[in-house]
Amino acid sequence: MDTKRTGKRNTAPTEHSGAPRAVDHGTTAAFFLASFLLWEVIVRIFHVPRYIIAPPSAVMTQMAARFTDIYKHTLATSLETFVGFGIAVLVGVPLAMATAFSRFLRQTFYPLAVTLEMVPKIAFAPIFVIWLGFGFGSKMVVVLLVCFFPILINGVFGFTSLPTELQYLSRSTGAGAIRAFVKIRLPYALPQLFVGFKGAAVNATIGATIAEWIGGNAGLGYFISMSTGLFRMDIAIAAIIVLTALGLLLYGIVLWVETKMIPWHVSQRARINATGSA
C-alpha cells in the first residue's frame, strides 16, 4: 500500500511544493568549490596538524603516490564485494520465489527473516572470521549476509504483490504456471527486486569494510584503519574516496542493468525525465 502511495507521489507534479529538486546548480557548484578551497586554506593557514586532517591537495598527492598499494587493496575489496553480492543474488532470488509460493515458508521462514533484517547482522562478523579465517572467505560471507536480506525481503514482497485482477487475467488466458510466471509475475516483481538489489549494493562495500576491520591484512577497510592508526589522514581519506567510488561502481552497475531490464517502470521514466531536465 505504501508502495502505491510513493508511486503516486513521484508522478504527481510538485512544482508548487518547493521540492528539493529545484536546486540552483550555479549556487551548488560555487558552494562545493568554496568548501574545498576553505578546507585547503584553513588547513594551511592554521597549520592544522596532518594527523588531524589533510588538505585536499595532500589527499590527491597520496592518491597518485600510493597508487600501487591502493590498487592492490581495491582489488581485494572488489573481489569480496562482487562475489558476495553475486552469491546473495543467486541464493536470494530463488529463495524469495520459493518463499512467495510456499505457504509454509511464508508463515515460518519469512517472519524470521524480517525480524533478522532489523538485527545488526554485522555482529556476526567476528564469528565468521573465527570460522573461516582472516582471508577472503570470511569477508565474502559477511558481504553475502548483509546483501542477502534486502534481496530476499524485497523479492518476496515483489513476487507476492501481483494484483488480483492481473492474476484473474493471466488465469483466464489459460496460460500454464510457467508461462504465467515468465510473462506476468516475474516482470511485475522486477521493480521491487531491484529495490532489493540496490539496497544490497549499498550494503556490500560496507560489509566488506567492516569485516576487514575485524580481521584481515588486505582490502581498503584494512588500509583505512592502518593509515589512521599511523595518523596518515591523507592516505586514509584517499582510500575512503576510492572505497566510495567502488560502492558507486557496484550501485551504478545495478542501476544500469535496471534501466535495461525495466525501462517501462515509473521509477525509470522519472529518472529519464530528471536527467533530461538537468
Partner: peptide
Amino acid sequence: ERYSQIGGIFAK
C-alpha cells in the same frame, strides 16, 4: 523509494 518501500514492508 527504497526507504519508503522498505518502510511499507515493515508496516505490512
